[in-house]
Nucleic acid binder design. Sequence first.
RNA 1: GCGAAAGUGGUGGAAUUGGUAGACACGCUGGAUUUAGGAUCCAGUUCCGCGAGGAAUGGGGGUUCGAAUCCCCCCUUUCGCACCA
Length: 801
Amino acid sequence: MVTVDKPKRKYDFRSIEGKWQKAWQDQNLYAAPDIPDADNKFYMLVMFAYPSGDMHMGHFRNYIIGDAVARYEMMQGKAVLHPFGWDAFGLPAERAAIDRDIHPRQWTQENVTVSRATLQKAAISYDWSREINSSEPEYYKWTQWLFIQLFNKGLAYRKRGFVNWCPTDQTVLANEQVKDGRCERCDTLVEKKDQVQWYFKITEYADQLLDDLDNLPDWPDSVKTMQREWIGRSHGAEVDFTIEDTGEKLPIFTTRPDTIYGVTFMAIAPESEIINRLNLEPEYAEAVADYQMQALRRSEIERAAATGEKDGVFTGKYAVNPYNGERVQLWVADYVLAGYGTGVVMAVPAHDTRDFAFARKYDIPIKVVIHPNADTTLEVATMEDAFTDYGPMVNSDRFDGLASFEAVKTVTDYAAQQGFGRHKINYKLKDWLISRQRYWGCPIPIIHCDKCGQVPVPEADLPVELPDVKNFLPKGRSPLADVPAYMNVACPKCGGEAERDPDTMDTYACSSWYQMRYTDPHNDQAIFNKDVASAWLPIDLYVGGITHATGHLIYFRFFHKFLRDLGLVNVDEPVTRLVCLGMVQDETGVVMSKSKGNTVSPGPLMDEYGIDITRLAMFFTAPTEKEVVWSGATMVGVQKFVHNKLFPLIENYRGSKPDLKQRFKLEEMNEYERSIFVKLNQTIKRVSDDIVRLQFNTAIAALMELLRDYDSANISSDQLNDCLVLKTIQLAAPLAPHVAEELWHQSGFEESVFRSEWPVYDPEAIVGDLIEIAVQVNGKLRDTVRVAAEADQADTGHHFS
RNA sequence: GCGAAAGUGGUGGAAUUGGUAGACACGCUGGAUUUAGGAUCCAGUUCCGCGAGGAAUGGGGGUUCGAAUCCCCCCUUUCGCACCA
């Protein structure tokens, strides 16, 4: 067969991209309406960016995914809100600024400028009129306003306690910012320090945060599981033991009150202040003090690493078990966590692995109170480990013979009756420590007055602006404390001399409510208009990294619920559907990050191949939730596709200006027409479904198949041919917007392809609705049957009977 | 240790609810074209076998007419939590 080379029109992206980007901007294509029709809106949000330099392929992937969905929803006729902004406060900016000897504001602004330019170059469909920056007074005024609302409701408070301290960053950290005992930002081992700090009372919302996870079917299970474990609710009993000498009550928390007759000692966390009140005899006091010092010096990791090898020190004191009046030794041991429960545990060596190891080591009595079952009994002498399951109770006085699982309640009820105990729920979740001893953050809007105490800054005086400070090197206390002009103010209540709080807030406070500000970003009278916010919320799709599963994604649910309780929003949860992207790795499998210096920037790729080809390559590499190893190899395939198939497609357009809604009759088509028409309709369905489930790689594959099979020469109907061309262009538009827009206009349209209506498939032209069922006997294919997809068992059953 | 997710060609990955496994690409092999290279086009490419055919979705069992998909055990990898009483 002789093939005649047709001269292909080259896809010259350089002359095309700029033209359409300008056109989109001129016609305000991305502008969201002020108030949408709540039934026909789509709020597409990608986590906002930390401006730490230009973006790499990992960021790029996030943004083009959001962009494709936003464009698709636009073509569905939805009012789309697709905003962007900058999470601009925080330590990295401060550290970089110190290294370069410039102001963090300058460093941040330079990065914002660069990143914004790259995003605009990539033509991400953001409504830039809604851009926000958390380090600007216009924004952080409302972060402060929120702080004050929390303060007024008793949900922002100061307390003394052992906190996580990063010696490198010279500031305290929230639990969520400690990973594996190390600072999330700089990887330094975290120390414990006894300090007064500000907290947000997120524990007030613990139950809602936990229970409402059940109402989020479109959140990944992994995230919900992580949040459930992070909140860590457990039901149990609080029982008051008594310190023998002083008579002081010593409450403990246990989930196993059924083992309470087996208590043979008690253990106190070394940080606990109870120890100070024990009036230790001199012969014990010194050893206990030494032990406390030693435990405090050890990091969490070291303490936890000694799994199995428990140690502690006897206080010389005894406590009394209220159930049976037995006196048991009181120990200090660092396997007890100060921050959970009451910081004191009842130890039941026979039925708890840790207590067992401890008792064996220090030769403390072991007492069996539960047997595995009625026929099997436990002998202390032969036990090699604790028996931690439930079973019939023994040696437990009035409770003997009860099944211990049910006895949890019975035993607790008894304590409640007698007045020495109660049912109790405990959480691993702790209140959110939000004060930071650093400069580049949102100032805490509280004034400390000797007479009036903690006084919030009056709303009219907000924002409390972050002053310019020359030297903001970390020194363990806020640099703002050394700025008298900032610190010294009159008390808003009594007018007397007072001081501002010198600390700034955790940046996670700034990022916990930005999603609402986007709905009304420039409101200077209120945090946002509640009707506007209610119309846009909840976010329909939120895209971001899995790394925020227990940090940001809990905090912002908490803020959302708080704002709901203030009456400012009317839904319970901020996000309907959450999707966490896999990381982008370099060719050696290492996650791309600025700190590792292995980033690939999309900029040069876009310059060399064009924006659309770069986007398609990223999309085509892997489905959304998987991590991507970026090698650039996929560039080749999608480049061929765009140059040889997609862009030249327009040459087959015959100019019939078809009505895109007309219906074609299968029975009037020739064989080829029928098969390509079916393929078109299958492709419409596949691409639509794939975009919704964010599986762009298969959407592109479907388009490749369609164009592979398409041959204009075999189609006699101009209308059919032209519909096929135009609908293919539309299907490609969310993925390759510049190419699609160019082709759309070359076919004679004046209006943007993104204002056109997304194609709808003809259900009658989807052969896929017939399923071919292979009938097999003993694994051999005997027959195939075609049945309608909706056919149920009854329809197909007779073939097998 | 506990919990979760996942294991498919040389590679990235398809197979939306159990229905002809390997779509779509990359790479590779052969051929065509080209002054040459790149590029482009055509053909082939899971494995074994000349072939008919057989085997195959980490391994082993099970349910089913039929399993990559559902159930059980084991192995491996990744992630999360890590003394939570």
